[in-house]
Amino acid sequence: MAAIAPGLGQVRNLWLISRFELNRLFASPRGWFALSAFVIIWYCLLRYPIFAASAQIQDPEVQRILGGMFGMAGMYNILNWPLPELTAYWVMCVVLLPICTLFFAADQTSSDRSRGTLRFLMLRTSRDSLFFGRFLGQMLIQTILMSLSILATLAMAWWRLGTLSAGAIEAALIMVINLMIIIAPYTALMAMCSALVKSSRMAISLAVVGSGVVLGLVGWAAWYLPALRELMAYVPGAQIPQVLSQAGWSTLQYSGLPLAQTAVFLLIGRQIMQGKSL
């Protein structure tokens, strides 16, 4: 067998593990079931709320009212995306995807731990390559699914207009990059929770209850020490209102916070993974 340097071997394994996660979605009956559900849900979202909303957004009167409403919330640029379909898609994804990620990315290592499959894997690869490989795999899967959904949104706009501008395609690319950054801390949070427990259900409960407890504690502490209210600006998703206030590439200026949160969750998760008995 060709000898591979241990460090390089673990990087190779990280990539193999993340690719195997793609097999889980595209080459297993369970994955096909999830994909079918995804297609049906997105068909319903595109066909009804997004289609209806985009039709409404095209009406100048509605645009004026919405502009006023969003403007009051500081989201002046929300109607500045090139297509009304993309505007509706954008608002819906930014609000819903973080919650969906809590469920979708919940089982990164937990059921393998419960089943004992991790013991087979740990004879061949490091805990780091498994932990980060599974995280990367989840990010790849979600990026592929988001790309498919935005392609469907563009197809719907093309069906209406008969053409697509380069600006619309560029906007779609910006949205996918933004959405990846927005879901990254939630995926990392679930990697961390999944490393702690033995089922995806427990991981979801831990994430929801843990977040609630942390928010409650910060709120309670801020009652006595108002300066602590600043901490609320660092919780996952805190940047979302600011992202919604922009359009185009300027939306990416708020990426620092979610990327930092992702790094923190991954580092904590890695420590848990390293210390956990199998």
Partner: peptide
């Protein structure tokens, strides 16, 4: 890795993949 093999007690394979698929994945690792 690859120099020590083990049969751990009560460890099970992933129910979503074929035996060949999983063993091949382990061998690639």
């Amino acid at each position: 890795f690859g120099r020590v093999g083990a049969l751990p007690q009560d460890a099970l394979f992933d129910p979503n993949f074929s035996l060949l698929n999983q063993l091949s994945f382990y061998a690639q690792l």
